[in-house]
């Protein structure tokens, strides 16, 4: 009889805890600050490359791998990166990740080719 009572009390305690947990933590979703921080880091990394006058030259030549190589030093570890250079249209990108951020950076071209380009940087976690 005592054993049944103990089990019953334990069950009530568990129900209380679960009710309190779901009431307190499932109503509001905690905003995701991580992807916002990725965007800031990504934007600053692109700007640093632009300040070195490298970004425009790479973008005009569509050398996205060189841009990615230069960005690695300034970006967070453990994340995946992909750079796309858009002319009139942007190339398609197939990434499936629950958490992904994209940063857009515009360049004017350079002294010999005054042609605008949009450099898109995708940052995500996972494969």
């Amino acid at each position: 009889m005592k054993g049944i009572l103990k089990s019953f009390e334990a069950l009530i305690a568990i129900l209380f805890i679960l009710t309190a947990y779901f009431t307190l933590f499932t109503g509001e979703k905690v905003p995701d600050l991580e992807t916002v921080i990725w965007k800031i880091r990504g934007f600053e990394a692109l700007r640093a490359l632009d300040d070195l006058n490298k970004l425009a030259n790479y973008a005009l030549a569509n050398e996205t791998e060189k841009i990615e190589g230069e960005l690695v030093e300034n970006l967070l570890l453990g994340l995946n990166y992909k750079v796309l250079v858009c002319n009139q249209t942007c190339p398609s990108l197939g990434i499936s990740s629950e958490k992904i951020a994209s940063v857009s950076y515009f360049i004017a071209g350079n002294a010999t080719h005054v042609e605008p380009r949009e450099v898109l940087l995708y940052i995500w976690r996972g494969t």
Binding site: K2, K6, E9, I12, A13, I17, L24, F25
Partner: peptide
């Protein structure tokens, strides 16, 4: 008393959850 331990522990856990929240 031993059975009430579960209820008291449950109340403590709920209080901790309130504090976290």
């Amino acid at each position: 008393m031993k059975g009430q331990f579960f209820l008291i522990s449950g109340v403590v856990v709920i209080l901790v959850l309130f504090l976290i929240k």
